[in-house]
């Protein structure tokens, strides 16, 4: 007699806790055969607001710890992901008609991507900052620093790698993240929360929402506590919507267009020029004299 398998209902990861959406709504995730594979939360605007609150509260401590420590935490995240490669590959394959080898490749690339960002935490200052030779008696230097809460709108696919690559860039500098996962396959987003929780990422630093992205664009872009938005693969219509609504608080908005090949190229996704949009350059002057 065949055993009834338990179809898991995934929660969202907000403020360091696994929570159900306040709306009570859920999304049925069907596998490639059209069977019910899982349920995920259908996150609401209110969930997003709560997540921003958590991220905002976590910002001071996350941006305040040393880059060395932040790097170790991100590396720990990579280690945890590495340890659950099979599970993530399976999660990717839930809804996506790709070969198991491709799914594995995506997980591996996600791990590598995290490793890259882990390395940036105490180096981006040196690549993006500088000292400036002003023509007067001042010591003058420019240092990058994080902005605050950055909202990430993940691409539909690659569902894991796209999310990891987009959140890694703002995260490594000390921003805190509210990410809205892939519409196409929310399962990797949902289980990435477990990686966060077990890898010393402080509560609120990464918040993961599943649901229908299009319902949230307006809310994301108009929320004044959100300092920046990072996305890839948005349609022109949605880019207009997001950018125009971002104008009220002058968010830093970055739309990338990565090809499938790009996603797998660490030099591209983890380039310092994808980190740069989510740091603010601060220039400090100080007199230099006895």
């Amino acid at each position: 007699m065949s055993r009834l398998t338990i179809a898991k209902t995934y929660k969202m990861y907000i403020g360091g806790k696994f929570v159900r959406t306040e709306s009570g709504r859920s999304i049925v995730v069907e596998n490639t055969k059209g069977e019910i594979a899982a349920h995920t939360c259908h996150g609401s605007r209110k969930d997003f607001r709560g997540a921003v609150e958590s991220a905002s509260n976590a910002f001071t401590s996350w941006s305040g710890i040393t880059g060395y420590l932040r790097g170790q935490i991100l590396y720990r995240m990579a280690e945890m992901l590495e340890g659950r490669r099979e599970e993530f590959a399976a999660a990717i394959l839930t809804t996506q008609k790709i070969t198991p080898a491709k799914a594995k490749k995506e997980v591996d690339a996600s791990v590598d991507c995290l490793v890259r960002f882990a390395g940036w935490t105490d180096k981006y200052h040196q690549v993006l900052g500088c000292s400036n030779a002003v023509a007067s008696d001042y010591y003058n230097f420019t240092v990058p620093q994080p902005q605050g809460v950055v909202a990430v709108i993940a691409p539909p696919a690659p569902s894991l790698l796209g999310l990891v690559a987009l959140l890694g860039a703002p995260l490594c500098t000390g921003n805190t993240i509210v990410a809205v996962g892939s519409d196409l396959n929310p399962v990797p987003t949902a289980i990435l929360g477990e990686i966060c929780q077990t890898s010393d990422i402080p509560a609120g630093v990464i918040n993961l929402i599943t649901g229908k992205q299009s319902e949230l664009f307006e809310q994301i872009a108009s929320h004044r506590q959100v300092a920046g938005i990072y996305s890839a693969a948005l349609s022109k219509k949605n880019r207009i919507l997001v950018e125009a609504s971002s104008a009220d608080s002058l968010k830093r908005v970055r739309f990338n267009t990565f090809s499938d090949e790009d996603w797998y190229d660490g030099d591209t996704v983890a380039s310092p020029w994808n980190i740069e949009p989510f740091v603010e350059m601060k220039t400090i002057w100080h007199p230099s004299a006895c």
């Binding site: 008696d137 001042y138 007199p287 230099s288 004299a289 006895c290």
Partner: peptide
């Protein structure tokens, strides 16, 4: 005393 500002 800040020398640079005094000079300015």
């Amino acid at each position: 005393i800040d020398t640079v500002m005094v000079e300015q």
